[in-house]
Design a protein around this nucleic acid. Structure first.
Length: 735
DNA sequence: GAAGAGTAGATTTTT
DNA sequence: TCTACTCTTC
């Protein structure tokens, strides 16, 4: 192993951070101050000192960050990392639950529900409670549930209207029956586990003797609780006296100025809380920026200094001077995209830059299309992170649903997705009857099906019984007006549904069972997935579904192929100890949009312009950065300021909006500080809102940049652009 | 049960 | 404008 020369490669505070391995440490690391370097060197140092890999836990905020950290450590130490835990909080939760969840009454093959699954379940729960889901914002309801679950809200307080409590309970019950967890559970259940079973906590507490947390400003309260449990063990409940903290070797790294996830429960006050809970914390500030030019830093400082609630610090850079920040005010989004594309082409040639030296940052996903369109037209290779993820495409979800059901047949949400996809004659009516029956028995659909099948002829009778019995819940879409007498005289859903579906339902069960047998526990299952897709004849399904547009069918099939290839590469990875279905599912459940289809690492990601949301750009840097759409209503985003969460109680709202504005400013700050050498900011004069073109004014944040750093972009391009605009208008007209 | 027509609703950021 | 869901008809 190569020995690192710490003294030479690190500055004073960095060195201190790397050398202080024992006791609690809080590192305030400004943007570009070598934070990643400090963390990775710190781990390297630990390994050098003979601390075992298994005793080290590094928690990050995104999977991407985790992967990157791991590979950097690997790189600088030249070691194999078999036993080092570098993961997100959520992934860590899964790791724990995978071992221990049975104590909590779940089975180990639990499913993990993402937003889509969760919305479906909420919808179903609403139906169970006889409430109409129409006109409701499922997303908001989900937020509410999440707030309650993580203990941020309580029923009857601030926006948590008690009427939803029943739905919430239904939702929770659904999860339990389906043996499924939502994202919050991944953190809450480990906490519950540790609190209720101290002996399990002991195990983890004594194992992870060195803990590090990156992007600490973005940790939520429950994440913090989890951290505290791990770090302090049984003592953590002991409270304020700080007993037992001496042994805690915890190092958290963060920057309050880069806290941009408060809408997700991030609470930068954890920084203050940490110092309280871990007495004797050594605080280290990293203020020297190695990334950006002075110009860019001054701009960033100018902006962020308008925030009131922050730890005092001032970034400075050794790279004096730097090129001015260029401001451009194109007419429309199209002009903006043209401008960006034009600059990229020019700079690439003039400054000999590669495409991947450019980062184009936007506030919202909806800004992508116009940019992409121009990049495509101009032949500029690009990649987007954010936007619709590969895993959210419906054909991919279908296949994954099959695999999830194979892993965990009780997962109703996914079972319902595929029970009639491809169509196999199990229609609404049959499903409604079955669901009704399952609900009565408090069991999952699968269990119900199994039970029905166990007696010959039973299925028919039971289904009939179910239909004859209570009014069918799947039919009345909630009550409207009459709550007492529901559904009343409506005609039955199709009294023949159950009868005619018997054979099909049976076939479906057999199908799933068959695949369960062949796939479960197999190391290397990608070829089986291929066979599965064949055996359900998904291809014919696509062809019939899209008979008007065969191209789409082909494209979708290509996606499936890509998915399977992805599994193959994952299986072949030498570091992968358990290449079977279950870990794969867990893994992809936690992969986010910004992680991209991760098989496009390495050679592919080079040579492409990076198009991403500002959120996704956190932690990254580019020689040249474009911030597109720096306009009022976009960068302090309209909706972010509108209603601060649930309560807009009279005077509270003022403050909440202030906080929201400050968060938007931090977001803008993050965007600026991604740039190394050159920063462009554009704000359109008009922007498309729905179909109408509306006037748009520059973001108020722009005025906070010291004017001497800014150079207005010359007008020539604008004229050029508008002639082009004219032509495209004419083309449109003659089409 | 499937296909097609029609309607409403929606546009913030993500593990 | 576009999409996702519902309703209607065969």
């Amino acid at each position: 192993m190569t020995r690192l020369n710490y003294e030479e490669e690190l500055n004073g505070p960095q060195l201190q951070a790397v050398s202080t391995l024992e006791g609690p440490v809080l590192i305030i690391a400004g943007a570009g101050s070598g934070k990643t370097r400090v963390i990775t060197y710190r781990i390297a140092r630990m390994l050098e000192k003979g601390i075992g890999q298994h005793a080290i836990l590094a928690l990050t905020f995104t999977n991407k960050a985790a992967r990157e950290m791991e590979s950097r450590v690997k790189e600088i130490t030249g070691r194999k990392l078999r036993d080092l835990t570098v993961s997100t909080f959520h992934a860590f939760g899964v790791k724990v639950l995978r071992e221990e969840i049975e104590v909590l009454g779940y089975r180990k093959n639990f499913s993990i529900y993402d937003e889509t699954d969760r919305n479906r379940l909420i919808k179903e729960s609403l139906r169970e409670c006889r409430l109409a889901s129409e006109g409701l914002d499922l997303y908001k309801l989900g937020q509410l549930f999440s707030g309650v679950k993580i203990g941020r809200l309580r029923w009857g307080e601030g926006g948590a209207e008690p009427q939803w409590e029943a739905v919430y309970r239904e939702y929770q019950q659904g999860l339990k029956i389906y043996n499924a967890l939502d994202f919050d559970d991944l953190l809450c259940l480990p906490i519950a586990l540790f609190e209720e079973h101290p002996e399990i906590l002991d195990k983890y507490h004594s194992r992870y003797r060195y803990i590090m947390v990156d992007e600490f400003q973005d940790t939520s309260l429950i994440q913090y609780r989890l951290l505290k449990l791990l770090a302090l063990g049984r003592e953590s409940g002991a409270g304020e006296n700080g007993a037992g903290t001496m042994g805690a070797n915890v190092c958290v790294v963060g920057d309050d100025d880069q806290s941009i996830y408060s809408w997700r429960g991030a609470n930068y006050e954890n920084l203050a809380r940490f110092e309280e809970d871990f007495p004797g914390t050594l605080e280290i500030k990293l203020e020297q920026n190695y990334r950006s030019t002075t110009t860019i830093l001054e701009a960033a400082n100018g902006v962020i200094s308008n925030n009131s609630n922050r730890k005092d610090k001032r970034l400075w850079s050794g790279n004096q001077g730097g090129r001015p920040i260029e401001l451009c005010s194109p007419q429309t989004e199209e002009d903006e995209a043209d401008f960006i594309a034009g600059q990229i082409k020019e700079l690439r040639y003039r400054d000999k830059l590669r495409y991947d030296d450019f980062g184009v940052l936007v506030r919202t996903n909806s800004q992508f299309p116009s940019l992409e369109e121009v990049f495509l037209a101009e032949n500029i290779p690009y990649r987007v992170s954010g936007g619709q993820s590969f895993f959210e495409r419906e054909e991919i979800r279908d296949i994954i649903s099959y695999l999830r059901v194979i892993a965990n047949p009780d997962d109703d949400v996914n079972l319902l997705r595929i029970i009639n996809t491809p169509r196999r004659g199990i229609g609404k009516a049959a499903i409604a009857s079955l669901s009704e029956l399952a609900r009565k028995n408090h069991s999952s659909l699968w269990e119900t099906l199994q039970r029905l099948r166990s007696g010959p002829g039973m299925l028919r009778a039971r289904i009939q019984e179910a239909e004859g019995g209570q009014g069918n819940l799947f039919q009345d879409q909630g009550i409207r007006g009459n709550s007492a007498e529901n559904s009343g005289g409506d005609s039955p859903v199709s009294s023949r549904g159950g009868y005619s579906s018997y054979g099909e339902v049976d076939g479906f069960i057999t199908l799933i069972e068959g695949w369960r047998e062949s796939i479960l526990g197999k190391k290397g299952f990608s070829h089986l997935v291929r066979a599965l897709v064949d055996s359900v004849d998904y291809w014919s399904y696509l062809v019939t579904e899209y008979k008007k547009n065969e191209k789409i069918a082909r494209w979708k099939f290509g996606n499936i192929d890509y998915l399977i290839k992805g599994i193959e590469t994952w299986e072949r990875d030498g570091d992968n100890l358990d290449p079977s279905l279950y870990p794969w599912l867990q893994r992809i459940s936690l992969v986010s949009r910004s992680d991209g289809g991760d098989s496009e690492e390495g050679q592919f990601k080079a040579g492409k312009v990076n198009l991403m949301t500002i959120h996704a750009a956190k932690g990254l840097e580019f020689p040249v950065v474009f911030i597109a759409g720096a306009e009022e209503g976009i960068i302090p985003h309209k909706r972010s300021l509108e209603d601060g969460q649930a309560d807009s109680a009279a005077e509270g709202s003022q403050e909440i909006n202030g906080a929201a504005l400050e968060e938007e400013r931090r977001l803008f700050y993050v965007a600026i500080t991604r740039a190394r050498d050159k920063l462009y900011i554009s704000s359109c004069q008009k922007r498309r809102d729905r179909q109408e073109l509306r006037d748009s004014s520059p973001s108020p944040f722009l005025e906070e940049i010291p004017p001497q750093l800014i150079e207005q972009h010359s007008e020539e391009d604008k004229i050029e652009a508008s002639t082009e605009d004219f032509f495209s208008m004419m083309k449109e007209r003659f089409r």
